[in-house]
Simulated assay, not measured.
Amino acid sequence: MVSRAGRLRAGPARRGGRAVAAVVAAGVGVGSLAACGGDPTGPVDDPAATGDAQRIGDTLDALEERIGELEDRRSGAAEPTASAAPTTGEEPAGQTAQPDDAPASPSGAPVEDPAGLFENPESLIGEDLTVTAPVSALVGVADVGAVFRIGDGTGTTVAVVMVTPPPELQTGDVVQVSGTVGRVAESSFEADFGIAADVLTDDPQAFFGDLAGDVAIAADRVTLVQQQAG
């Protein structure tokens, strides 16, 4: 009986162990008294004492099982729970972000101006760039070249000078222009843009009266992207 109590688990169930020890002590005492039977001459077999000892043993077994259950519950509560997977901000598998459409001018024509030409033309003089915008005005058109203006629809326009046969253009057509940004000056126009003004227009004086001092693109390539509807 004592050895059974000694095997009780320690730790969180320490109070249960003390209770079991008390029951064991009581059981031992009862068993001893029952065995002696009050007779100093020696132990006497007593069926009632044997039944008491059996009940005490059953009680100890039940207490051991209960203490084991409590310890298992306590250890289970202390185990860490699985944490949620961290979010990465990435799109779910199978989904991709869609690119934004090109912005449009107030007239509805698409405008692509990654260099910011229409925001600050002066800052881009000497730079190579590509811009897509609608034709806002035709200044001079010849078989070997052309001068026209493109704009973003807000009132800002930039001249384009090309020295190759131009496509058939009209106001409102959308073109993509690649070239170098410069400034129109009458004294250096042919050297800067590769063509004489009198080749592009019958009235060079009016031509420079309109364009002198303006920022313009010396175009290497002009592509018609979209024709004016109608």
Score class of each variant (00 low, 15 high):
Ala13Cys: 11
Val222Asp: 05
Thr223Cys: 12
Gln170Ala: 12
Pro47Ile: 03
Val44His: 12
Arg18Ser: 14
Asp202Glu: 10
Val24Gln: 01
Arg73His: 11
Val24Ile: 05
Ala206Phe: 10
Asp143His: 14
Met1Tyr: 07
Val135Ile: 09
Ala77Lys: 06
Val222Ala: 07
Pro47Trp: 02
Gly172Pro: 01
Ala185Ser: 04
Asp198Arg: 02
Ala109Phe: 06
Pro99Gln: 15
Asp143Met: 10
Glu79Cys: 14
Gly126Asp: 08
Ala21Asn: 04
Thr164Phe: 14
Asp58Leu: 13
Ala34Trp: 06
Gly182Lys: 01
Arg73Ser: 07
Glu127Ile: 15
Pro110Ala: 06
Pro106Thr: 03
Ala26Val: 06
Leu138Lys: 08
Val147Arg: 01
Val28Gln: 05
Ala191Leu: 15
Arg18Pro: 07
Leu70Tyr: 05
Arg221Ile: 09
Glu71Thr: 10
Arg14Asn: 15
Ser123His: 14
Gly209His: 06
Val199Phe: 15
Ala21Glu: 03
Ser123Cys: 14
Leu224Met: 07
Ala21Arg: 03
Asp214Pro: 03
Ala219Trp: 05
Ala104Gly: 12
Arg183Gly: 00
Val174Trp: 02
Ala77Cys: 08
Leu117Lys: 01
Gly145Glu: 04
Pro166Lys: 01
Gly16Pro: 07
Val131Trp: 07
Asp52Ile: 07
Ala21Cys: 04
Arg73Ile: 10
Asp198Cys: 00
Gly68Leu: 09
Gln54Lys: 14
Asp220Asn: 12
Leu33His: 14
Val141Ile: 13
Ala185Asn: 03
Leu211Gly: 04
Asp52Gly: 13
Val144Ala: 15
Asp100Tyr: 14
Val181Ser: 00
Gly89Ser: 08
Asp100Met: 10
Val24Phe: 00
Glu69Cys: 04
Asp202Phe: 14
Pro121Asn: 02
Gly182Val: 04
Arg55His: 10
Ala137Lys: 12
Ala206Arg: 11
Gln227Thr: 15
Thr201Asp: 02
Glu127Asn: 15
Gly27Ala: 08
Glu127Phe: 12
Val23Asn: 02
Gly68Glu: 12
Ala197Gly: 08
Ala22Ser: 09
Arg55Tyr: 05
Glu71Asp: 07
Ala146Leu: 11
Val161Asp: 02
Ala35Thr: 06
Ala142Asn: 03
Arg14Tyr: 11
Asp173Thr: 01
Ile217Lys: 06
Val163Ala: 12
Asp214Thr: 09
Glu79Arg: 14
Glu190Asn: 11
Gly57Asp: 03
Pro110Ser: 11
Ala218His: 15
Ala21Tyr: 00
Glu127Gln: 14
Thr132Ser: 15
Ile217Tyr: 06
Thr50Glu: 13
Asp143Asn: 09
Ser83Trp: 06
Gly194Ser: 02
Ser75Leu: 11
Pro47Thr: 02
Pro166Arg: 00
Pro165Met: 12
Arg9Pro: 12
Gly116His: 05
Ala22Glu: 05
Gly151Asp: 00
Ala77Leu: 06
Leu138Glu: 09
Val139Gly: 10
Val135Asn: 05
Ala21Ile: 02
Ala197Ile: 03
Asp203Ser: 04
Ala159Gly: 04
Ala77Phe: 08
Asp45Cys: 13
Val222Lys: 02
Ser32Met: 09
Val161Phe: 06
Ser188Phe: 01
Leu60Val: 11
Val177Lys: 01
Asp152Glu: 02
Val184Thr: 00
Leu224Asp: 05
Ala146Gln: 05
Thr157Ser: 05
